[in-house]
């Protein structure tokens, strides 16, 4: 019979009318993203050693970082991601040995203006000469203490 297929189709669509909805009303309700979701980037400043592996791994040169020396340690001064060029491939996060750079589940990164898209994760002033001196002094004290402890241990070993 001609029209049988049409009636079958209507049966299917009408059947769904009485079943649970599969959509959510977006702005009011939001779906939870999976743990691995590639959302906005997060950077843990304390964990970061400013090695620049993330910037090297990036196919599009998205990551721009400035670093300085504080004592023997390297610290970040600026960490800017040009998100407008980002492919969200996750190579930078994969490259990070210290687990400092991570993805979050934030999905709304839209901006009205192009210059606002840029993501600045670290932007801090350069350390003052006093801070550098303090860091160096602290490191020197630490080294001296370690040396003293080693000498003590050695003396103890000789005694025993």
């Amino acid at each position: 019979m001609f029209g049988k297929g049409l009636i079958k189709g209507l049966e299917i669509t009408w059947g769904w009318l009485f079943r649970k909805k599969v959509t959510v009303e977006y702005p009011d309700k939001k779906i939870v993203m999976s743990p691995r979701y590639h959302g906005r980037f997060e950077l843990d400043q304390d964990k970061c050693i400013a090695c620049g592996l993330c910037a090297n791994a990036c196919p599009n040169k998205v990551i721009q970082l400035e670093k300085t020396k504080l004592g023997k340690k390297q610290i970040l001064l600026k960490y800017v991601m040009r998100i407008e060029y980002c492919l969200f491939c996750g190579y930078c996060v994969e490259a990070c040995n210290k687990d400092a750079l991570k993805f979050s589940s934030v999905i709304d990164m839209n901006q009205y203006f192009r210059d606002k898209v840029r993501l600045t994760l670290v932007d801090r002033p350069a350390p003052t000469p006093e801070e550098i001196a303090a860091a160096e002094a602290e490191e020197a004290a630490k080294a001296a203490a370690a040396q003293a402890a080693a000498a003590k241990a050695k003396a103890k070993g000789e005694e025993g």
């Binding site: 993203m33 999976s34 492919l87 969200f88 491939c89 996750g90 190579y91």
Partner: peptide, 21 residues
């Protein structure tokens, strides 16, 4: 509707919904 289910699964695995890398 059913493609969405697949994208959800692939998102669990790779973190992206379309451009997986």
């Amino acid at each position: 509707r059913d493609r969405e289910d697949i994208l959800d699964m692939l998102e669990m695995i790779s973190g992206s919904r379309m451009t997986f890398s």
